[in-house]
Write a protein that binds this DNA or RNA. Structure first.
Lengths: 255, 255
DNA sequence: CGTGCCAGGTGCCCT
DNA sequence: AGGGCACTTGGCACG
């Protein structure tokens, strides 16, 4: 599993170790001196240095430098990964299956090596994504406006996909666009596209926790409306409706 | 550095080990049973399971599951990271400095632990980015068209930033937009914005290795032009002009 | 800080 | 495959 002595192995044995980990689809972590080349949509070359290399159980591939959030090289799965021997190094070739892209890595020495099957059955829940917000609004249309009635969500129009389509208390057709972050000019443009296609007599509301000044100006100029929604309030609704004892609420209580 | 025996340590000692690695700004890799919660622009909760946790020297933070390219949780640097003790677990709290976001991780046991300073001075070179293409064109305007003369690149207009502004052989003002991948409708829209702002009598050329049928239709309808450029050809020009013996060319020759 | 735009963006869903 | 769009998008440059 963990092999701190990997540098005492011959290149052949090291290659065999990696090959075996790959064939049994284990999760592989290597901290090593390496150099890497990418050829695909663009080209890149990374000179020698110490990095973290990760090969996941589904062949996802990542090279991380000692700083910066983003990987310096990567390959989305599925990949075909092969091992060979070079001059004083093990050569890792990672080819994407669905696209003509490859990363070739030369590994010269190791500072750390790990390979094992990881058991991860825990589920992941994301809250307050735009999709979830629109689901909440579907259940609670009064949060948009009193007397609001939702006709459809994710409605496919030529101009794009309208988040929420409904009728207000006075019977006017209304388009609602949700933005979970601060709405910018692009959000307003998006709404404008829908309104122009929908024709006259259609209301449009941009629903978001905040809006930039420029975006609000553009919005007013075009007769659109803005309504602030509190994400905190929405999250309370979620919590309230989660009657079942979730592991999240246990976590929050510190159990 | 590598500690395969971390599970024999007490929680207090484990916490101290991590705390020390953090304070000396080492690169930390943990393969561990954990559960994680994110609160910020959205909220998420990740139930117990085995994952890879990475803390980089600049406090970049990542949690990776055994499959999928993208991390399940992350925090871009800079972060403030603190350690405390919970029930049967070590609690890691990662707070972003510039935004109100945090990830809280409860770690229950370890399968692997690594912490060390990594030495990575190798430089990284990316070729054929849009910027680099525009630089090549600046040196070789004949690749756009015979007799083409470039006036400016990255020109800031109200409608946006024009990649290349120039004059063709017949003296007409011409806008050139570069797309390094297949050009879609959005690329055409971008060019249209520039042309409409520039007024009449202005040519516009979309330069890209390929174009989608829909985008080409829209382009023709609006009197714009499309010119195919071969990325391979451009890459040959780069290679030719790199007279200095780069580590990339050595790599390519297999040395 | 907002605005624009690129990225080897990735991922998801739909036609 | 192509379109449309969200993403805790991240990242950069500029006013």
């Amino acid at each position: 599993m963990i092999n701190a002595m990997i540098n005492t192995l011959s290149l052949q044995d090291t290659a065999e170790l990696i090959r075996e980990a790959l064939s049994s689809r284990r999760f592989i972590v290597m901290i090593c001196m390496c150099e890497a080349q990418y050829i695909g949509r663009a080209r890149s070359f990374l000179e020698k240095g110490e990095r973290l290399i990760v090969i996941k159980e589904d062949t996802s591939f990542l090279i991380h430098r000692p700083t910066e959030l983003e990987p310096v090289n990567w390959q989305p799965p599925p990949n075909h990964i092969s091992i060979s021997l070079g001059e004083n190094c093990v050569i890792l070739t990672v080819r994407r299956v669905r696209k003509p892209e490859r990363v070739v890595v030369k590994i010269y020495s190791f500072k750390g090596f790990f390979s094992d099957k990881l058991s991860d059955n825990g589920s992941f829940h994301m809250h307050l994504s735009e999709k979830e917000i629109s689901e909440i609004l579907r259940k609670h249309p009064e949060l948009i406006e009193d007397g609001f009635r939702i006709v459809s969500t994710e409605f496919r129009e030529k101009a794009g996909i309208i988040d929420v389509l409904g009728v207000d208390a006075k019977g006017r057709r209304t388009i609602v666009e949700i933005k979970k972050d601060k709405a910018g000019k692009d959000a307003v443009k998006q709404v404008l596209r829908y309104v122009r296609e929908a024709g006259t007599g259609v209301r449009a509301i941009l629903l978001s926790p905040n809006i930039t000044p420029e975006a609000e100006k553009m919005l007013r100029k075009n007769g659109l409306e803005f309504k602030k929604i509190s994400m905190l309030e929405l999250s309370r609704i979620i919590t309230y409706e989660e009657h079942s004892e979730s592991s999240m609420s246990r976590f929050l209580r510190g159990e």
